[in-house]
Design a protein around this nucleic acid. Structure first.
Length: 275
DNA sequence: CGTCCACGTCTAC
DNA sequence: TAGACCTGGACGG
């Protein structure tokens, strides 16, 4: 599930539960294939989290040193605070806290990754809290070859649109009333609202407690948010096709006639089997 | 039972 | 531009 809004919510969840607590170690599940060393040079530390696009940075700080862990959450990553020993199934990275509590990265599909260091340099600024840098990064590079690609596909490119994922790109293009297959350069120059929506749409998703397209257990979800998010988001709605990068893309049916890809089965031809 | 599908990257022909 | 990496829910026979 996680895109920009959900990463931001996760960072707040971590901060809320890590606040004023002393961490005493970290460990990973036996099935995890992440190679990042689990050894740290201190025994007691605090944790604070911040998100940027689709990355999450955990700052582990001891009395006299600190280390940053950069995490990406894959398709199903989330965080959960529990009693030690009662971590949810599919917990793969665990931080143990003095007093018998544990903060866990729970990830059914195990696509989440973590490594020591800093923000991945291949990813652009966060379109919400680094909006000016985000816009400059785009206009400064608008003649870059990649902006010849279709706007619907380029919105998934984290070099320019860090944090935008499959539900956000559909929702952004829907509210921008933008033809999805125009070149990104033309689309952005003719319809700069697209860039504003790269900030506003994730912020709106955040206000509504983030994506809950299935039964994703966002600890902050309120029932009324669930309803408004589903009504507002443009995903699993309208028409869809598999785009050039192999991802399903949902769009306003008004653009169907210009879609260069095969549309998702409108009217399945009834086939009759005869003996 | 089986097949398809999922809110994301990665790397390798 | 395919797969690969993963589990599990939805849905069909």
């Amino acid at each position: 599930m996680p895109e920009l809004a959900e990463l931001k919510i996760m960072s707040e969840y971590i901060n809320k539960n890590a606040n004023n607590r002393i961490f005493i170690g970290l460990r990973k599940s036996v099935v995890s294939k992440v190679k990042t060393p689990m050894k740290i040079p201190f025994d007691f530390f605090t944790i604070t989290a911040v998100s940027r696009g689709k990355e999450l940075k955990l700052k582990l700080a001891s009395k006299d040193s600190e280390m940053n862990l950069i995490c990406s959450m894959g398709m199903s990553g989330n965080w959960f605070f529990s009693k030690t020993g009662e971590e949810p199934k599919h917990s793969h990275l665990m931080f143990d806290i003095l007093g018998g509590w544990t903060l866990s990265l729970v990830d059914v599909r195990r696509f989440a990754k973590w490594k020591w260091g800093n923000w991945n340099t291949g990813r652009g600024p966060d379109p919400t809290y680094e909006y000016e840098e985000f816009v400059n990064n785009i206009y400064d590079n608008i003649d870059h070859k990649s902006f010849q690609r279709e706007i619907s596909e380029l919105l998934l490119d984290q070099k320019w649109f860090n944090g935008i994922g499959n539900y956000l790109r559909s929702t952004i293009l829907y509210y921008a009333d933008q033809s999805p297959w125009m070149s990104a350069k033309d689309a952005i120059l003719q319809n700069p609202k697209i860039l504003e929506l790269c900030k506003e749409v994730p912020l709106m998703a955040y206000k509504m407690s983030g994506g809950q397209l299935k039964d994703w257990a966002n600890p902050f979800n309120k029932p009324e948010d669930k309803i408004s998010f589903r009504d507002w988001v443009f995903y699993y709605k309208g028409s869809s096709c598999i785009d050039g990068s192999g991802r399903r893309f949902w769009f306003d049916p008004k653009w169907e006639s210009t879609c260069p890809y095969e549309l998702k089965s409108e009217k399945e031809e009834e086939t009759f089997e005869t003996e």
